[in-house]
Protein backbone atom coordinates (compact mmCIF):
# COMPACT_ATOMS: atom_id res chain seq x y z
CA UNK A 1 0.00 0.00 0.00
CA UNK A 2 2.89 2.35 0.72
CA UNK A 3 4.02 1.97 -2.88
CA UNK A 4 0.60 3.04 -4.14
CA UNK A 5 0.67 5.99 -1.78
CA UNK A 6 4.11 7.04 -2.97
CA UNK A 7 2.91 6.83 -6.56
CA UNK A 8 -0.08 9.00 -5.64
CA UNK A 9 2.30 11.44 -3.96
CA UNK A 10 4.20 11.70 -7.25
CA UNK A 11 0.91 12.49 -8.99
CA UNK A 12 0.15 15.14 -6.38
CA UNK A 13 3.54 16.75 -6.93
CA UNK A 14 2.46 17.19 -10.55
CA UNK A 15 -0.86 18.69 -9.46
CA UNK A 16 0.96 21.06 -7.12
CA UNK A 17 3.19 22.27 -9.94
CA UNK A 18 0.20 22.74 -12.21
CA UNK A 19 -1.61 24.82 -9.59
CA UNK A 20 1.16 27.08 -8.37
CA UNK A 21 3.73 27.53 -11.14
CA UNK A 22 3.52 30.33 -13.66
CA UNK A 23 6.21 29.38 -16.11
CA UNK A 24 4.88 27.69 -19.26
CA UNK A 25 7.69 25.13 -19.30
CA UNK A 26 7.07 24.22 -15.68
CA UNK A 27 3.43 23.56 -16.51
CA UNK A 28 4.39 21.20 -19.34
CA UNK A 29 6.81 19.40 -17.01
CA UNK A 30 4.07 19.06 -14.35
CA UNK A 31 1.79 17.39 -16.87
CA UNK A 32 4.62 15.02 -17.76
CA UNK A 33 5.08 14.11 -14.07
CA UNK A 34 1.37 13.35 -13.73
CA UNK A 35 1.56 11.10 -16.77
CA UNK A 36 4.50 9.18 -15.32
CA UNK A 37 2.65 8.64 -12.06
CA UNK A 38 -0.47 7.29 -13.74
CA UNK A 39 1.45 4.89 -15.99
CA UNK A 40 3.53 3.66 -13.07
CA UNK A 41 0.44 3.16 -10.92
CA UNK A 42 -1.22 0.93 -13.50
CA UNK A 43 1.88 -1.24 -13.80
CA UNK A 44 2.34 -1.38 -10.00
CA UNK A 45 -1.24 -2.52 -9.68
CA UNK A 46 -0.72 -5.32 -12.20
CA UNK A 47 2.41 -6.75 -10.60
CA UNK A 48 2.21 -10.30 -9.34
CA UNK A 49 4.62 -11.52 -6.71
CA UNK A 50 7.39 -13.81 -7.99
CA UNK A 51 6.05 -13.67 -11.53
CA UNK A 52 8.19 -13.41 -14.63
CA UNK A 53 8.11 -11.25 -17.72
CA UNK A 54 5.22 -11.95 -20.10
CA UNK A 55 7.46 -13.45 -22.76
CA UNK A 56 7.68 -17.17 -23.42
CA UNK A 57 11.33 -18.12 -23.72
CA UNK A 58 12.58 -21.29 -25.29
CA UNK A 59 13.97 -23.77 -22.81
CA UNK A 60 12.51 -21.97 -19.80
CA UNK A 61 9.77 -23.65 -17.82
CA UNK A 62 6.68 -21.48 -17.93
CA UNK A 63 5.93 -20.22 -14.47
CA UNK A 64 3.45 -17.52 -13.60
CA UNK A 65 3.60 -14.29 -15.56
CA UNK A 66 2.67 -10.74 -14.74
CA UNK A 67 -0.46 -9.46 -16.41
CA UNK A 68 0.33 -8.51 -20.03
CA UNK A 69 -2.86 -6.52 -20.62
CA UNK A 70 -2.02 -3.37 -18.57
CA UNK A 71 1.46 -3.41 -20.06
CA UNK A 72 0.02 -3.32 -23.57
CA UNK A 73 -2.36 -0.48 -22.74
CA UNK A 74 0.29 1.57 -20.90
CA UNK A 75 2.56 1.15 -23.92
CA UNK A 76 -0.17 2.86 -25.94
CA UNK A 77 -0.49 5.58 -23.33
CA UNK A 78 3.24 6.35 -23.26
CA UNK A 79 3.34 6.85 -27.02
CA UNK A 80 0.31 9.15 -26.93
CA UNK A 81 1.97 11.15 -24.15
CA UNK A 82 4.87 11.89 -26.46
CA UNK A 83 2.46 13.25 -29.05
CA UNK A 84 0.65 15.45 -26.56
CA UNK A 85 3.95 16.73 -25.16
CA UNK A 86 5.03 17.73 -28.66
CA UNK A 87 1.69 19.50 -29.21
CA UNK A 88 2.01 21.38 -25.91
CA UNK A 89 5.54 22.43 -26.76
CA UNK A 90 4.39 23.72 -30.14
CA UNK A 91 1.61 25.75 -28.52
CA UNK A 92 4.06 27.15 -25.97
CA UNK A 93 6.48 28.15 -28.72
CA UNK A 94 3.77 30.10 -30.52
CA UNK A 95 2.63 31.76 -27.28
CA UNK A 96 6.17 32.83 -26.43
CA UNK A 97 6.72 34.16 -29.94
CA UNK A 98 3.54 36.22 -29.72
CA UNK A 99 3.71 37.52 -26.16
CA UNK A 100 7.47 37.48 -25.57
CA UNK A 101 7.08 36.05 -22.10
CA UNK A 102 6.88 32.68 -20.38
CA UNK A 103 4.75 33.97 -17.51
CA UNK A 104 1.16 32.83 -17.92
CA UNK A 105 -0.21 35.62 -15.76
CA UNK A 106 1.05 38.13 -18.34
CA UNK A 107 -0.58 36.34 -21.25
CA UNK A 108 -3.92 38.05 -21.12
CA UNK A 109 -4.81 39.36 -24.54
CA UNK A 110 -6.72 36.53 -26.16
CA UNK A 111 -7.62 38.06 -29.52
CA UNK A 112 -5.65 39.90 -32.14
Amino acid sequence: MILYLMCFALFLVGVYGLLTKRDLIKLILSIAVMGYAVNLFLILFAYKKDAGIPILLEGVVQGSMVDPLPQALVLTSIVIELGTTALLVALAIRLVQKYKTFDITKIRRLFG
Partner: peptide, 26 residues
Protein backbone atom coordinates in the same frame (compact mmCIF):
# COMPACT_ATOMS: atom_id res chain seq x y z
CA UNK B 1 11.79 -4.11 -11.64
CA UNK B 2 8.09 -4.66 -12.32
CA UNK B 3 8.87 -7.22 -15.06
CA UNK B 4 7.90 -5.03 -17.99
CA UNK B 5 10.91 -4.89 -20.33
CA UNK B 6 8.94 -3.63 -23.35
CA UNK B 7 7.65 -0.72 -21.34
CA UNK B 8 11.11 0.06 -20.00
CA UNK B 9 12.48 0.33 -23.54
CA UNK B 10 9.56 2.48 -24.73
CA UNK B 11 9.79 4.73 -21.67
CA UNK B 12 13.52 5.15 -22.22
CA UNK B 13 12.97 6.19 -25.84
CA UNK B 14 10.10 8.47 -24.84
CA UNK B 15 12.33 10.18 -22.31
CA UNK B 16 15.12 10.75 -24.80
CA UNK B 17 12.72 12.16 -27.39
CA UNK B 18 10.90 14.34 -24.88
CA UNK B 19 14.17 15.79 -23.63
CA UNK B 20 15.36 16.45 -27.16
CA UNK B 21 12.09 18.22 -27.97
CA UNK B 22 12.10 20.30 -24.77
CA UNK B 23 15.75 21.30 -24.94
CA UNK B 24 15.60 22.06 -28.66
CA UNK B 25 12.44 24.09 -28.26
CA UNK B 26 13.24 26.16 -25.19
Amino acid sequence: FLQAPDLAIVQFLFEIFAMIILVRAF
